[in-house]
Amino acid sequence: MAVAQAKLVKETEDCSLLPLVHDIIKCMDKDSPDVNQELTKLKTKIQETREQISNMSGIDCSPPEQQQQLATLREQVRTKNQLLQKYKGLCMFDVPKAS
């Protein structure tokens, strides 16, 4: 659990662009020739993030919509389970008493 949490934190930290922007500003302050390299890093990072977002699954809808779909699916599974249990529990050869 702790490992997963740490992984999540790392992933979200990796998403931030501020460190790269900070590096660029630092390079500009120092008149460093690495500024172009840092700029390229930022561009590459932005492009990679776009691709990552495009490849992420389950984000084609908003969280409330997704929750709604999840609830619907759970309800379907529950209903179908109930139906199957009802049929399995049915005694086929029980003759109903004549009223």
């Binding site: 999540l8 992933e11 979200t12 977002i53 992420m56 699954s57 389950g58 984000i59 969280p63 997704q66 929750q67 779909q69 999840l70 699916l73």
Partner: peptide, 13 residues
């Protein structure tokens, strides 16, 4: 973070 959570929910779905 929300997207990560949605990815997990998507797996469950």
């Amino acid at each position: 973070e929300v997207a990560q959570q949605q990815g997990k929910i998507h797996q469950e779905m």
